[in-house]
Each structure stands twice: as structure tokens, then as C-alpha cells.
Simulated assay, not measured.
Amino acid sequence: MTDPLLELDDVVVEYPAKSRGRKPFRVLQGVSLSIAPGETLGLVGESGSGKTTLGRAVLGLAPVTSGEIRYAGTPVSRLGKRERRALSKDIQVVFQDPYTSLNPAMTVMDILTEPLLVAGVARAEAQGRVQKLLDRVHLPHDAADRLPREFSGGQRQRIAIARALCRDPRLIVCDEPVSALDLTTQARVLDLFTEIQEATGVAYLFVTHDLSVVRHISHRVAVLYRGEIVETGDAAQITERPEHPYTKRLWLAAPVPDPKRQAQRRAERQKAATS
């Protein structure tokens, strides 16, 4: 059996209260999960469930109050800044909004070569890698000389994916990476994620509120509700035969293109909410 690439063991994340005398606000309440090399774990939950905080904790951007995060068997939840920078070679991120995560004053070439140059790669080699990355994410070669504002939302997200791939990571945290895109563009970007995974063996922690997206991209799914994992399992089981009432409500809330089916789902959701 393959050892996990990423493990979370009873992870708790708390933030200080805004006023004196009040208890800290607990966002994650003892979360445990794992991701194998080359696997996609879909982390699904509604707004406020704690899923983005979980992703930030993995990236070292949210403090871990208790519990442990391990990467390739090594504890990483309390690393210093230098050790965390070294780990960034292996763990990268793709954010929700590709435009705000890209420097609007830099060309695509500058954006993509920057992490390579910081890592000590020679400029000529870095530029050669960038051209290969643009091919991998299906952007034209002349994209390298253009600014982010010259691209559509889907193309900007491809640039963000290329940046995440620059240093050949083993794990990418994907924080709602398609939620800002229209449905057709969503499908193309999801297919790109799958294509890249098949070619490179990278693992994904794929954070989303949409079970239909999770079904498209994930091998396994974990459902987060108020900071706790309430259901985990294979993607087909969670999205087709959910057991927990919260997971069922999430599935009923997912939009479908058929108006009659959508109306039926709305009625079923209202019935579930009052039962």
C-alpha cells in the first residue's frame, strides 16, 4: 500500500476572539484526512465550513492550534519561514481568482520565470521551461509577451496553473479554481487539471462548494461541515449515494440544466430542510 503524501491528524485551527473575555473562534475541529501520491481529494462544503482555512493550513498560511500536518511523513505544520519556503517546491497553490493572483504589471514570461529565477535557475533555461509550460496548459507561445489583462478568465487560470507547475510540485492545493468561470470554461479547465495529473503524477487537494465539480475531478471526497469532516468516500459513492444529511443537501443544491429537474430538486431540498 502506498504511503500517504499528505496527512492531517486531528488538526484544530483557532483564531483569537476580537474582544476580551470571549473564547477563540474555532474554524477546524479536529480534522483528519490523507492524500496519496497522484490522487485528487475533493474537499467540499458550503461557504464558512472551513475548507479554505484547511487549504491555508496545509500551505502554512493559517496557524495550526493542535494536531499535526505531515508531508511525506515529515511534520510540517510548525515549520519556520525558511523551511516553509523550501517546501514550496513540492506544495503549490492555484487560487480562485486568477486575475488578482497575477501581477498585472508583469508579462506572462516574467510571472512564470520569477519562481525559477528565485530558485537559482539560469534565465535562458527558465525561459525554455516557460515555453514548455505554455504548451502544457494549451496557451500560444506569444502569450509569454503579453499582460494578464489581455486574456480571458479561463486563460488567466491556465497561466496560474502554469505558475503552480513551474517547479514540478508533488501536491497542488486548488482553492475553488473554477468557481469564477462559466460552465463551458469550467469543464475545459477541469479537463486540463486531469490531463496534467495523468502526465505528471501530481496530487490535488481540490477545494470547492460544488459536488458536480468534485465528481468530475476527484478520486475521493471529504465533506466538511462547520469545521468537521462528516463524510468521506469514493467520489462516485459520495456524489451518487451520499449518506450524511448535510451531503444530501449539498447535492440537492447543485444546479442542473433541466428546469423540471431543478424544480424537483428545489422541492426536495425544502423538504429536507424542514424534516
Rank of each mutant, 00 (worst) to 15 (best):
V178R: 03
G154C: 08
A187R: 13
H219N: 12
P242G: 10
Q127E: 15
H216T: 10
A180G: 06
A203K: 05
V202Y: 11
Y99A: 12
T200L: 14
D135M: 07
L224P: 02
Y71P: 05
E240Q: 15
K18F: 13
A124E: 13
E46T: 09
V93N: 01
A180W: 09
A105S: 14
D97F: 04
G50Q: 02
D168P: 04
E195W: 08
L59A: 08
D142P: 00
K51W: 09
E228H: 10
R261Y: 00
E39S: 04
A160E: 04
R70Y: 10
G201Q: 01
A72G: 00
R136M: 12
N103H: 14
Q237F: 07
D175Y: 11
P104R: 13
L79T: 10
V213R: 01
L41Q: 04
V189C: 11
V13W: 10
R241H: 15
P75H: 09
R84L: 15
G80Y: 03
K18M: 12
V58S: 14
P257W: 11
Q29E: 14
I217E: 05
R129N: 11
M109Q: 14
K81F: 06
A199Q: 14
L41K: 08
A72F: 00
P242N: 05
H216G: 00
L6D: 06
H216F: 14
G48I: 03
A119T: 05
A203T: 04
P37G: 06
L205N: 05
E268D: 12
R170P: 01
L112P: 01
R84G: 01
Y246N: 04
A160I: 01
R84F: 07
E114S: 11
V11M: 13
V31Y: 11
Q157P: 02
V27Q: 06
P37S: 03
R158P: 10
R269L: 15
R70Q: 03
R261W: 06
S49E: 01
Q197H: 08
I238Y: 09
A119Q: 09
F193W: 04
I69V: 13
T100G: 15
L133V: 00
S32A: 05
C166Y: 06
V202E: 06
A222V: 06
G227P: 00
A236E: 14
R123Y: 06
D3L: 12
V256K: 10
R167W: 01
E228F: 03
A164M: 03
V76G: 01
I238H: 02
C174E: 03
G153S: 02
I172G: 12
P259W: 11
L8E: 00
Y71W: 13
T200Y: 08
L205K: 07
S49V: 00
E68A: 15
A187P: 06
R26Q: 14
V76N: 01
V58P: 03
G21W: 12
R82Q: 15
P148V: 03
E228G: 08
G120I: 02
R22D: 11
Q262M: 12
T185M: 14
Y15A: 10
G201M: 01
L190P: 09
G60N: 09
L205Y: 09
W251I: 13
E240G: 12
V44R: 04
G153K: 02
V230G: 02
L33P: 00
P115C: 11
